[in-house]
């Protein structure tokens, strides 16, 4: 069994009358990518900022590598790398200067190779305010990783990045994970969480509404698999068709779409029906529920 690197137990955070986080508990294992998902105001950033030592919890306990972030923030500094939601570097700071500045405070040599890896080598002399949002995010990440922290906390790391940059960041996260780095990834991007995270927790109104691997989460939902079929003729155009396991159906772009709890039986029945009608099947697609659909189901319902 792997070691727990991050432990959150009955964590509670309150701002005035507003309960931002209401007694959540989870653990993150060594070398794991843990996704923290949730709509705006769900408590993701409060949780991350408390793990980073920026906020003190109002209840419960937090541990990052056995360190209490609120009480021992100095010890924590060299153990965590943080990319904040808002990048937060001085406008006049140059790219190479930022690397030197933060590396010096961590007591390590500047990691210029990270700037190169993240596509910033051409911008070494550019001041922070001259960089695009995407480049600012990349610089912030490079600075966060310069001291090779064993724990990395990323708050919306791909916000503002184009597709190639996102893929590059995902590759980098996989490399970090392979090297044993533990990563917490707070994101709105469900596809990213599904692709990157070993486990996720969905926060809703300060509580964990669901937690598990992306596959476990999608399997425990309403479990509706989408079956889409297109035929040459009109054998599927009759709305009153009743296939086994189908609870909803729709028509879109010449496709008949069925949401099924028993996709195997549904597909067999559809094919049998098409053959019986003398029609020809052109295309058939079966898509399992995505994490995004599960997320919408949970957040829309107000809890699991």
């Amino acid at each position: 069994m792997k070691d727990s690197v991050i432990m959150v137990k009955d964590f509670r955070k309150v701002y005035g009358d507003v309960v931002a986080v209401d007694g959540i508990s989870f653990e993150v294992q060594h070398g794991e990518i843990f996704g923290l998902l949730g709509p705006n105001g769900a408590g993701k950033t409060s949780t991350l900022e408390s793990l980073e030592g920026l906020r003190a919890p109002d209840g419960g306990s937090l541990r990052v590598m056995d360190i209490d972030p609120a009480r021992e923030s100095r010890k924590l500094r060299n153990l965590i790398g943080v990319q904040l939601q808002t990048s937060g570097l001085p406008d006049s700071m140059r790219v190479d200067e930022a690397m030197r500045f933060f590396a010096a405070y961590h007591g390590v040599a500047p990691a210029y190779h990270l700037l190169e890896r993240l596509g910033l080598s051409e911008k070494m002399s550019a001041q922070y305010h001259m960089l695009s949002t995407g480049l600012q995010r990349r610089l912030s990440l490079a600075v966060a990783l310069a001291h090779k922290p064993p724990v990395v906390l990323l708050d919306e790391p791909t916000a503002g990045l184009d597709v190639p940059s996102r893929n590059e960041l995902h590759d980098l996260m996989h490399e970090l994970q392979a090297a044993g780095t533990t990563i917490i990834l707070a994101t709105h991007d469900m596809a990213e969480a599904e692709k990157m995270a070993d486990r996720v927790a969905i926060l809703l109104r300060g509580r964990i509404a669901a937690a598990g691997t992306p596959r476990e989460l999608t399997a425990t939902g309403a479990g509706l698999t989408k079956v889409s079929a297109r035929t040459e003729g009109t054998s599927l155009s009759e709305p009153s068709l009743n296939f086994p396991g189908v609870s909803q159906q729709a028509f879109k772009d010449e496709y008949a779409i069925y949401y099924s709890t028993d996709p195997g039986s549904t597909v067999s029945a559809i094919i049998a029906h098409i053959q019986a009608q003398g029609d020809t099947l052109i295309d058939l697609r079966v898509e399992r529920p995505s994490l995004e659909e599960r997320f919408l189901e949970i957040t829309g319902a107000g809890g699991a």
Binding site: E52, L54, R77, V82, S87, G88, L89, F102
Partner: peptide
């Protein structure tokens, strides 16, 4: 201005 922009938070996290 730096405090309002959250720069101090970056500083704190990085041990400044």
């Amino acid at each position: 201005a730096a405090r309002e922009a959250g720069i101090f938070r970056s500083y704190k996290i990085n041990g400044v």
